[in-house]
Design a protein around this nucleic acid. Sequence first.
DNA 1: TTCCGGTCCTGAATCGATTCATATCCGCAG
DNA 2: CTGCGGATATGAATCGATTCAGGACCGGAA
Lengths: 343, 343
Amino acid sequence: MAPSVGIKDVARAAGVSVGTVSNVINRPETVATETRARVQSVIDRLGYVRSESARQLRAGRSRIMGLLVLDMGNPFFVDVARGAERAARAAGLGVMVCNSAQSPGEEAEYLSLFAEQRVRGVLLTPADATGRNIAAFRRHGIPFVLVDRVAEGTTECSVSVDDVAGGALAVRHLVDAGHRSLAYVSGPPGLNQVRDRRTGALDALAEAGLGPDALRELPTERLDVAAGRDAGARLLGLPDADRPTAVFCANDLLALGVLQAMYAAGVNVPDDLAIVGYDDIEFAAAAAVPLTSVRQPAVTMGALAAELLLEETGAQGAPTAHEHRRVVLQPELVVRGSSLPAR
Amino acid sequence: MAPSVGIKDVARAAGVSVGTVSNVINRPETVATETRARVQSVIDRLGYVRSESARQLRAGRSRIMGLLVLDMGNPFFVDVARGAERAARAAGLGVMVCNSAQSPGEEAEYLSLFAEQRVRGVLLTPADATGRNIAAFRRHGIPFVLVDRVAEGTTECSVSVDDVAGGALAVRHLVDAGHRSLAYVSGPPGLNQVRDRRTGALDALAEAGLGPDALRELPTERLDVAAGRDAGARLLGLPDADRPTAVFCANDLLALGVLQAMYAAGVNVPDDLAIVGYDDIEFAAAAAVPLTSVRQPAVTMGALAAELLLEETGAQGAPTAHEHRRVVLQPELVVRGSSLPAR
DNA sequence: TTCCGGTCCTGAATCGATTCATATCCGCAG
DNA sequence: CTGCGGATATGAATCGATTCAGGACCGGAA
């Protein structure tokens, strides 16, 4: 347990004032070469590390950015984090990644943790549909950017992907392949993404002259693999005549679950059932029947969100003029084996 | 931009001293009921949030624990993080998760970030085989616990899984199923885990009277799905007579890659090639040919490591007597479709 | 009345780095 | 010789919360 060495210890050992040591660290050009070298060598010898808390206390704000995601078990969010981290570090900031696990309670806790840390800003994928947490957080005056969700009004920035377009892409592809009876494994109703993707799906059906009856909706409790298996079982339980020939899943985890259920039951994918997922996580391509999926530019989203935040808080210190923006990215369909038209 | 309200503002507005406000927050029982209520209501009204940096500065250490992992894209580490976070939060600490991406350079950067933050302690899966980063970090006197790696000597705690036993489990299973010609997709040579698992594999072969020749080693650059696909392609390139009937992969990502390559080439798993992975990540069970895998108790490891750290730093403040420990957990074989004995 | 033991509250010192007004020194121009 | 600008270095004030020695007040006992 090294008795932590502070700037004063360095100053004393180098025979200079604390101000000079500080200058060596932060504005080396203002210090005479010789002095600088001497101080630097003392710093190295003593193993001095400056205290972020003291620094922050003086500066009034920290050099970390908070990132609060819905589910760290979902590779999609891992990619978002990767993108955000890259952008933040380019600006010399660290990222503190937290997982609300879709629970408004956890979300609230982490937001106040961020507030206590006087975090520079927050990237947030909201878990609380009521927006109460967000409203409470706004009071702190800490800027934030919504990720994977469109901001209402112009109160803050957001980066999202056009979910309606994504849903349409998926279903148009299936309809083009000849499918007329589809299912939508949707996840928890009430999530915006889930709703928008359905809207897009229905649009695509309408284009083809099909009504909403062509899309059987299968909601699930959660957005994970187990829920997908469950939905697969429900599909298998349908009488043959009634069973859809294609499924669109609100996310790849669900799709993988459905795929697994089909495999276990000996149903051929894609011949007996075509499957399209959403997100295009790495494991989608790696599944033994590679999954057709709607790709979201997750890394880009994270990076873009971080950059918007940096723009707002002023990367270098002085906040620049900033107008809140809502960036909407376009998804892209990646066709793989799970939906290739039956020969 | 709310002009940040401090404890002094609260004190003034409530007509008490700063000391009293601090007491209301930290030792409510020492404040008269009426005063406490008044102060509390002012706190709520002004939206006061205490500044962690000031708090830390005074306390000398922060309430955060650092966690530095090798690859956030690997669900195994996501589980470790989950476990660590649970344990840390039970003790009122936050966790700052960082990703060294197996780069010693990044590792060094994050370690000094942790040092600057005066983090309470660090959980570390080392990326730098030379141990230079660790040696440098030790100077700061910040306690740390090695995760997924055995500490040498008794300089610190570690939590790991018996990789030799794990390798033996996997290969014994394959030998029992009648396989006599195996391959080991090993990842980057030089990683301890990779070596230990091979040792175990050879042990199991020896038990069955087979020599090292029965295990063809296929090293790869990285430990991810793409590397696995690559190794799969190399396997497929072998002349039929020479081709192993079973593969053991150093991790599930590799195994999924191999599986995918086999699927693409029309090779039947497990009849033509049995596959066993390592880690038992969620996607292993979700693969269309569910993957036999050696399960590591990832969540437990994370939680245990965090608890060891808390014990060492003294959860409540006063560091308790602490003896460094090396905990070694046992892996467990989970048999699934990818290795079920051919009929 | 005086003194005592509580209860409740005050206010100054403290943590470590940054910042800035001020001091010192040197060389050179006037 | 004086004065001035530039280059360096100093050290006190500051950030916000915590802590603790001590003060104010009250009721009851002697």
